[in-house]
Design a protein around this nucleic acid. Structure first.
Lengths: 278, 278
DNA sequence: CGCTTCTTTGACGAAATTCAAAGCGTGTGG
DNA sequence: CCACACGCTTTGAATTTCGTCAAAGAAGCG
């Protein structure tokens, strides 16, 4: 079969990312990126316009007719971070909170680990989405953020963007909106729904978000392992496998390892409806 | 037995609340309070100082040394609403979003109803806590807010408080914090935890929050029916009954209908730990 | 090519839901 | 003041869904 699946990152596989090897030493998995001084800040931005139109801050960053000085300040604020290879920690639970970031490319997983070592996946963040908002209440990040594949970020100092938000009403509104949205998203997951509903909702939600940042809505690659999907949906990995299998037998999807095609998105959406409508 | 249980509201039972009967006509359950013109604004505030010290905005409202003009404006912004009798809708899903509010007295339940009519309880809000934050993203409230007992509110126009937040950095920070906290709270509920853990966590959390607003941490009255507790925790009402029964047999709590005493809070907290620690 | 990691599949078991019904309190009306 | 009805809560028994355990299969990587 030809490789017609579209990767969820615009960056080539991380082996070929020039900065990764140099920046993250022998054990890239353990390198913290945000607060430390070891991160890579890339000033060159070959695809800024195209990325920025899909970013959560696009309405602000690209706004015309606003106070030019403030707008320039916002652009000065952005630090381009990455590419970060898969497995890199963007930040860790307990790290001092300083910045939020927009995902520019790749997928970031946020999760918590309790003291018994059990991991709890809280979200997957695609290009254009913001990470770090839940850290604002408290001095430190309340969870881990890990790159699932090769990731690029736009980092914003939070104190500085908050100060700027006092000058740019649109920016303040956007920050409020993003956080408000975060509450809604977390609540959705907390509903009591069947495994079928959860998995259908996961696929439909992913599909919509991928479409929103310019990828195919029906054919994509899952950048996360089954264990992470299962953990995020509060199911066993085996259950995810079995349900996907059944969805395929019923002609709704076509799955092969991490490559997935939504064959009958309408029927999937119908299944997902009780979860997504809420 | 003497009535040693402390009610969760400072307001007398709603039959004796002077404004309720007049303001909410024959069927108080269906009266929307927020956007309409039928609400009761009480200018008299016999216990302002005592309430305000426990409110989520206390650090802002009571702040000294801030810009006096802005502070006065914030106080001008507050509208006292209520008392609202049990069952009153504070706002409804789809109502135009205009205001957030701090609960002054009583308990407010927030919930959603899907198109099949199934209700999903999303939270219980005690005195000092803020409702309406999840409505900021979108023009309309995404859910219902219902008074569980006699409720009094401090209402703030959101556009105006957001504007004020641009002048009072502490207010903006507080708003950011509250919303950030909301994300964390919703995520806690989404973890996969046993019925025992959920119920223990619910009791401990309630106990802490009641203590935070000046009530007893070990003896209180549940202002919501079992069905609401169960729904909130994503359990069947029967499961809640059974687990509470078992907790009582194990000597951790003493339950009688809606009156509850935490006999062994330490052991309860231990049970709740996996849920609350995250 | 052989290792590791991830995924899939089957059999079994446990936790919680569902269904059914009885108990308890409160408020209403006689 | 008592009887009754309604809603909420509790209890028991059967059922179901999903998780756990065990092991085999597939893909990627050195």
């Amino acid at each position: 079969m030809a490789r017609w699946f579209i990767r969820m990152t615009r960056c080539p596989p991380h082996g070929s990312c020039p900065a990764s090897a140099a920046a993250f030493g022998a054990d890239p998995v353990t390198v913290a990126v945000f607060p430390g001084s070891t991160h890579t800040v890339v000033t060159d931005d070959g695809d800024a316009a195209r990325f920025c139109t899909t970013c959560a801050f696009s309405s602000v960053c690209l706004a015309e007719g606003l106070d030019k000085g403030a707008l320039r300040e916002l652009h000065m604020l952005v630090e381009h971070v990455g590419p970060l290879p898969a497995g890199t920690h963007v930040f860790r639970t307990g790290d001092r909170f300083e910045s939020i970031a927009a995902v520019r490319g790749g997928t970031v997983k946020t999760c918590r680990v309790d003291r018994e070592g059990r991991e709890q996946v809280l979200g997957f963040h695609l290009p254009g989405e913001i990470i770090g908002l839940s850290a604002i209440d408290g001095e430190r990040y309340p969870r881990d953020a890990v790159a699932l594949d090769t990731v690029q970020l736009c980092r914003f100092s939070f104190p500085r963007i908050a100060m700027l938000a006092r000058q740019i009403p649109g920016l303040q509104r956007q920050l409020f909106r993003l956080m408000s949205r975060g509450i809604g998203h977390a609540e959705r997951l907390s509903g009591d729904h069947s495994a079928d509903e959860r998995i259908a909702a996961f696929l439909i939600d992913l599909s919509k978000r991928l479409q929103a940042c310019g990828f195919s809505a029906t054919r994509f690659e899952l950048t996360m392992p089954r264990t992470d999907i299962a953990n995020y949906l509060r199911l066993a990995p085996e259950t995810v496998s079995r349900v996907l299998r059944r969805f395929q037998d019923d002609g709704m999807v076509h799955v092969q390892r991490r490559e997935i095609e939504l064959v009958d998105p309408a029927r999937l959406a119908l299944l997902a409806e009780p979860m997504l409508a809420m």
